[in-house]
Every structure is written in C-alpha cells, then in structure tokens.
Amino acid sequence: MDDVAAAGSGPRPTRTPGSLRLRGREFPPERTLVMAIVNRTPDSFYRPGLTWDEDAALERVHAIVAEGADLLDVGGVPAKPGPEVTVAEEIRRVVPFIERVRAAYPDLVISVDTWRHEPARAACEAGADLLNDTWSAWDPKVADVAAEFGVGLVCSHAGVALPRTRPHRAAFADVAADVLDRVLLLAERALQAGVAADRIVIDPAHDFGKNSWHSLEVTRRLDELTATGWPVLMSASRKDFVGETLGVGVDDRLAGTLATTAVGAWLGARIFRAHDVRQTREALDMVESIKGNRPLARAIRGLA
C-alpha cells in the first residue's frame, strides 16, 4: 500500500500509476482495455433483450472475446427506471450465467454490474473478478464484499441520484470537481474496507445523475481524474449524452461513442465499457499508436 498517499484536504488518495490486478493478471497503465457489455436483461436501452436468453448471451461472449474484449461486464438490472428487479431475480439472471462463462473461460476477467451486495457476493462466489458499482456506493457493503473476496471495485459518481433513477434538474457548482471528490472518497473508503489499491478503479459514470452538459464537461476534464493515478473506467457507449450531442437515436451513436472513446483514451482513461467491441478496440489501438505506445500493424508507406 506504499504507493497510495493522502493528498489535499480530506481523504483524497492518489496512486502512483501502476498495474491493475484482476484474476491474477496484471494490466499495465499504458494498456487500454475493452470491457464488453453483456446484459442479462430483457429491457436494456440498446438492443434490448439481445442477450436475455442465456445461450444467446454465451454466444455473444464467444463473439466479443474473439473481437478482443479484455473484460466482460455482466448486468442483470437496467440503469433506467422500470419494473422492479428483486435481489433474488438479479441473482437468478446473473449468477448461473457467470458460472457458465467462468467454466468456458477460466482466465477471462468478469465484472458484474450491480449496486447491491447480495448479488455482488453471489457473483464473486461464481467467479466474478470486479464489482462495477455504478450507483456510487448506494450500498456500502459492496466494498466489503470486494475486500472479502479479493476482487476489484469500481468507485463511481452518480451525483445525488438513487439507483435506477433519471436525473431531474441535476446541478453542480463544478461537476468535474464533484466527480473527483466523490470517486476519491469512495477509493479511500474502499482502501479502508480492505480492497487492495491495485484493484480499485474510478469511473465518472457518464449520464448517471448528470445531464449531457455535465457528461461533456467531465469528458473534457477527464485528465483531472486520470491525474490521480487511479485507473479510470469510461462508460460512454451509446449513452444519452452522445445522442443529445448529435441528435441521434441509440442505433446511430457509434461514431459519437468512438469519438468520446478516443478523447478519453488520449486523456488517459484505461478501461472502456463498450457495446461495440471490435470498433472500440480499433479506436483504442489507433489512439495508442498516436500516443506512441503501440507498434503499427504493418508499416511500409515511405519506408521501402
């Protein structure tokens, strides 16, 4: 833990940029990772029900692993308001599926998108490696589960929003500062709960408790997050702020998503939660080569 130090006023831990450690694997800071979305829901906002059927979901896993996914993010409850999904139902949707994926891919890093500790615990028992707590520690026991199982934890920002709510006239004096304060507070709490520093990820959580101006501001100032040294997860794929920025529906948000991805990667984000795995991987590869971190696939122009 000697690479973590308190900085500034209050608990604002910074971290020397280092490897993220999940499932015994090390992901160095200069490498960008694609976190592929697999929704075990009938009603998520993009391509609803695509992977509602468990066999279809497993087929999807085969496909996205082939496309270069580094992590899976399995979710059983949509972020938007809707019919209640009980803890038992969430577990039923997510846990048997994680068991099947784990059996098929012993080394694949599996994240579970949940805000409640009971599904988090059941997912860890089934072989999950990362708890993607998108509703900003609504249930503080999620961090305890992460510590108990030695898995990773995503510390996110949702403003004043409660789980599965839409923002209503969300307002921040300084949204980027609010995000920074919140995710660093949660990182500090995670450390205190016993989560290892090299398993903590921070996420501004675009759209969560924020309007589109807020999400763009957070994107513009993402370097303030990456400067903390904590690995930054960016979850922008096909979200409403992309749609509102461009005036397009969910089916037409790929270009906006990839542009956002490129800016995030340039500013140092490390994990990109994505519906479109191959395209995201290509966009990230392009940015990594622009940064000078990745050899070109095949260069001959002007070199013969």
């Binding site: 050899p295 070109l296 696939a297 095949r298 260069a299 001959i300 002007g302 070199l303 013969a304």
Partner: peptide, 15 residues
C-alpha cells in the same frame, strides 16, 4: 538501405 530493414520500423509485421 530501405528504412524497413531497421528493427521495429514496419511495426508488428516483419516484411
């Protein structure tokens, strides 16, 4: 003496 003969210049593909 094409540049492509130098190590690393052609990227991931050895031409």
């Amino acid at each position: 003496s094409p540049p492509l003969l130098a190590p690393g210049v052609t990227g991931q593909t050895v031409l």
